[in-house]
Computed example of a mutant assay.
Amino acid sequence: MKSSAVLGLALGLLCAPAAADDVLRFLDAPDRRGGQVLAPPNCQGGLRNDDGSFEGATGYANAVQVGAYVMALDIPAGFQPTRVCLCWTRGPFNNGTDLDFDVVFFADDGVGAKGEPGFPGTELGRTSARAEAIPEFLKDGVAMYPVDLPPELRALSGRIHVGVEWQPFVNRQFFNCNDTEAEGSTERPVFEGYSHVPPEPFWSPLSPMRPTYRAFGTVLYGELVAAHDFECRDDLPGCIPPP
């Protein structure tokens, strides 16, 4: 995806480690106003937790060899996922505009460091992808990139954790977009995101380290394959109600 669109808002940039984990890096617009979102037609609508505006982004320190972020999405019965769109942006000290990454899927059967349920657990699959001409946050905002799912990942259903894994040490200053809220606000729910940096044995919830976090810009698309008790909505492209 290539674009010469210029970010209309005057954004400031904050890139700092999280208080509880110095491997995390964040980008934020100081005024908490979302900027330009470059999205092709097949990355609009869908099963999503964000509100369509991305006021920040989350990445890793350059020293991190491999890092991953995921977020839970609920796939209704009878809905077959066929595509996922991921939102990316770059910091000012990046080493290029293109990124090779994996889209990863985990079951909701894991536990946290203290035995808490509902964490990413069993890996269900992954597929390789590439995002090109990723915009720089300060200049051009963020962009959505579609990735078609292979047949073996189209049978996923229920609550799963979906996200990205990449090599920050090789591909520096790339960030996964996230929807944010003013710190301390309770106006919108938090759809918890999780971070993992091997060889750590557990996934870490993101919101305790990033109080403004609300959701990642990860969106699923698909088609209705069975009637069940599923209602098609305008924000589910490709969903055709049964006769």
Rank of each mutant, 00 (worst) to 15 (best):
F119Y: 15
N95H: 00
A133Q: 12
G112L: 12
G45N: 07
L124P: 05
S128C: 01
T127C: 02
R90K: 12
G91R: 06
L27E: 06
C239Y: 01
L224F: 04
T58L: 15
N42F: 02
L138T: 12
R214W: 05
E187M: 08
L14C: 10
A19D: 10
L149W: 08
M144N: 05
V197H: 00
G45R: 02
T218G: 08
G78F: 03
R172Y: 01
P241R: 05
G163D: 02
Q65A: 13
L99C: 11
A155K: 14
R83L: 05
L206K: 03
E136W: 01
G56S: 12
S207Q: 07
D51K: 03
G184S: 06
V37H: 03
P76H: 02
I240F: 07
G45V: 07
L236P: 06
G112W: 03
Y60C: 01
F137T: 09
S195I: 14
P150Q: 06
T97F: 13
C87S: 06
P135L: 05
V70W: 02
G141E: 10
H196R: 09
M1C: 07
Y60L: 11
E165C: 10
Q173P: 12
V23Y: 13
D74M: 01
P120A: 14
P237V: 01
R154T: 00
V225Q: 08
P135T: 06
L13K: 03
T82S: 13
L156A: 00
F105I: 00
E165H: 04
V23K: 14
E123F: 10
N176W: 08
E183R: 12
T127W: 02
P135Y: 11
W88A: 02
L138D: 13
S53V: 15
G78L: 13
G12Y: 09
I134L: 07
E223N: 13
V147G: 05
V6E: 08
G35L: 08
T82G: 10
W166K: 04
W88F: 14
D98L: 03
G91F: 02
S3L: 09
D179P: 05
E181R: 06
T212W: 14
L236Q: 08
V190D: 00
T127M: 10
P201D: 06
M144E: 13
E152C: 01
D50M: 07
G67P: 07
R210S: 07
P237A: 07
A68D: 07
T218Q: 06
R25F: 08
S185I: 03
R126S: 04
G118D: 09
D21F: 03
V66N: 13
A227S: 15
A77H: 00
C85W: 04
E187F: 13
G8M: 07
V103R: 03
V70K: 05
P151V: 09
W203L: 10
A226K: 08
D102A: 11
D108V: 05
G141W: 04
C15K: 15
E183C: 15
E152S: 08
A20T: 15
A226D: 11
A72V: 12
R48L: 12
L236Y: 06
T58V: 10
P205W: 00
A131S: 03
S4I: 05
L14S: 13
A72K: 01
W203H: 04
F93R: 15
F106L: 10
R172S: 09
G184P: 02
L24Q: 04
